[in-house]
Computed example of a mutant assay.
Amino acid sequence: MNRELVLCCEDFVSLSRSLDAVFADDIAERLCAYTLGGGARIRPQFLWWALRACGGTDAEVPAALRVAAALELIQSCALIHDDVMDRSAERRGRPSFHTQIALQHAANGREPDPSAFAHSAAVLAGDLALSWADDLVAGADLAAAVRPDILRIWRLMRTEMVAGQYLDLHGQATSSRSAVQAIRTVCLKTARYTIERPLALGAALAGADATTTRALTAAGRCAGIAFQLRDDLLGVFGDPEATGKPAGDDIRSGKATYLLAVAHSRARTAGARGVIDLLEDCRGSADLSAATLSSVRDALRSTGAPAQVERRIGRLARAAQHHLAAARLHGSAARRLAELLTAVASPPGGDAAPPVTAAGPGGGAR
């Protein structure tokens, strides 16, 4: 898949350069480098192994690789826009897309407010990534029998992703403490476009029946929610060297995570007014210090919320495997699919598979 993605990016950069060299240098080339430069390629892997597990043949490979490349571009769109909305300075241990642009224009001294310019330019870059992704899917050599399903799934996934991003913003703006809304946001923003829809795309490419597809997508939804709940925990308690993002960014940006919703609920039940006040004071605090973040971590642990989130992740991981078993898939591809679901959904210390890496058409750091 990486080779397909490289070739697609080269075509897009060539088109961009034919329009304008500055646009090609500043946006198109940078977008391609950003897309090619990291990530675990988990979405293409779920598509690929679903295709194979559902009986897909070599005839479907060219279309599968093209759609897989589109998934990586829509992921770039989501990450670039997320970092703008969250004002995140880093991604994957490197400057985020808008930070790269700001650094470039601060260095040349021509832009009076490089951060405002960079945010606007990054929004355009995210839009461009989505446009390129759509172009790849529209131009894929899809069999007539599967094209309607592929396009239907793709349209759903795009809208679900944007709906989830909006709910994420809405939760921050309203300081939501609803656990139900937090899970709804997770489902739309992450679970569906990260795992459920890539599985559905792979199954559709293979011409899988409705029963198999329903079981696969249910497994993907459970694993995807678990994946995001794990990411929420890492956002507060993780090591930046491992996550590639500064610790505490979810607190600083005021995200309405399930972890915080559970902590508030448990603190209210226990009458822990000091914990509630601390969480309220620190949520959305852009200048949150390391010492204060440590206090927030202690407060969260005192409520038992992290442990409750871990338990939910465990239940979701088991549910994902139960749904996968109901799909009645067999062979090495089905086993690899089970390993991938375990790798993204299982809690640390469980029987987790090796990290999601290059066993399929992907590879690289998350």
Results as ranks from 00 to 15, higher is better:
212 T>P: 02
235 G>W: 02
63 A>L: 03
15 L>F: 08
348 P>M: 00
8 C>Q: 15
125 A>N: 11
52 R>E: 10
361 P>V: 15
359 A>P: 00
351 D>F: 06
209 D>R: 10
228 Q>Y: 07
128 L>G: 07
262 V>Y: 06
57 T>C: 02
144 A>P: 15
48 W>M: 02
84 V>I: 11
211 T>R: 14
251 I>G: 14
348 P>E: 00
211 T>Y: 00
202 G>S: 06
147 R>P: 13
128 L>P: 09
140 A>V: 04
309 V>M: 07
132 W>Y: 08
328 R>Y: 03
63 A>S: 13
347 P>N: 00
40 A>C: 00
141 D>I: 01
34 Y>V: 01
333 A>S: 12
346 S>C: 10
26 D>P: 02
207 G>N: 06
208 A>L: 14
273 R>L: 08
311 R>K: 10
307 A>K: 08
115 S>P: 00
309 V>Y: 02
166 Y>H: 13
163 A>G: 02
217 T>N: 01
105 H>L: 13
102 A>V: 02
123 V>W: 00
285 S>Y: 03
299 A>I: 05
320 A>V: 08
309 V>Q: 07
87 R>G: 08
206 A>N: 06
244 G>R: 05
303 T>K: 13
233 L>F: 09
243 T>R: 11
163 A>N: 10
42 I>H: 07
287 D>L: 08
267 A>S: 05
193 Y>D: 09
202 G>Y: 10
78 A>M: 10
361 P>A: 15
361 P>G: 14
1 M>L: 07
207 G>Y: 05
351 D>M: 09
71 L>N: 12
218 A>N: 13
325 A>I: 03
248 G>W: 06
3 R>P: 04
335 R>A: 13
321 Q>M: 14
56 G>L: 10
101 I>L: 15
255 K>A: 01
136 L>Q: 11
43 R>L: 10
125 A>L: 03
344 V>F: 05
251 I>C: 10
292 T>V: 14
120 S>T: 10
160 E>A: 14
262 V>L: 15
175 S>H: 13
330 H>R: 06
333 A>T: 04
127 D>A: 09
366 R>Q: 10
167 L>M: 13
236 V>K: 04
147 R>L: 04
297 R>M: 05
64 A>I: 03
9 C>L: 05
345 A>K: 03
194 T>V: 01
220 G>W: 05
103 L>Q: 12
21 A>P: 13
124 L>K: 01
330 H>T: 12
345 A>S: 15
222 C>S: 15
151 L>Q: 10
54 C>I: 04
366 R>N: 07
288 L>T: 13
85 M>L: 15
150 I>N: 10
60 E>A: 15
290 A>V: 03
313 I>Y: 10
262 V>N: 08
311 R>E: 15
144 A>W: 00
365 A>Y: 12
14 S>L: 04
337 L>E: 11
50 A>C: 08
338 A>R: 12
118 A>L: 11
261 A>Y: 07
166 Y>D: 05
226 A>K: 01
245 K>C: 02
293 L>E: 14
20 D>S: 12
295 S>H: 08
254 G>W: 12
301 R>D: 13
9 C>Q: 05
126 G>I: 09
114 P>K: 02
272 A>K: 11
111 E>S: 12
209 D>S: 05
197 R>M: 04
111 E>W: 08
347 P>K: 00
253 S>R: 11
75 Q>W: 04
129 A>L: 12
326 A>R: 13
45 Q>H: 09
257 T>K: 13
103 L>W: 02
83 D>I: 01
203 A>E: 07
268 R>I: 02
361 P>W: 15
84 V>G: 14
